[in-house]
Amino acid sequence: AHWQEKRKVSRQNRSAGPQAYCRLQELTVDLHYDFIIVPAEYIANNCEGSCQRPLSARIPHYSSHTVLLLDMQERGTPLRRSPCCVPVKYSSKEIIRFTGEGMQVTTYPNMVAVECGCR
């Protein structure tokens, strides 16, 4: 969060009331793969919600790049890809998986979303 940003909330946003802003939401994912023995499901989470200015007042994880994209949109320049609420930090998960040699405990990285940001 390095970019100077004016904390201006447009009239439209104010009158629309509080919007669901980019945040971490609980999401359980089935692991119905024939090589995964345990667990059958786990909480993977997801990042959900809108990305709008001002970012600084709402979310700790944003980049100057994102602020500049949002500014472009606000000035009326359409973007082919609008800023999006995505995981910016993951944690790993232990899995017991089936291999040719039997069962094996493996730690898979980037399995659980733990922090969200606008990118």
Partner: peptide, 24 residues
């Protein structure tokens, strides 16, 4: 295999062992 699982949050809600099958 039997043992302790490292997390309480991976669908570990039942007090009894109700299995589901995996076709490896």
């Amino acid at each position: 295999m039997q043992g302790c699982w490292g997390s309480d949050r991976d669908g570990c809600d039942s007090p009894a062992c109700k299995t589901s099958p995996v076709h490896t």
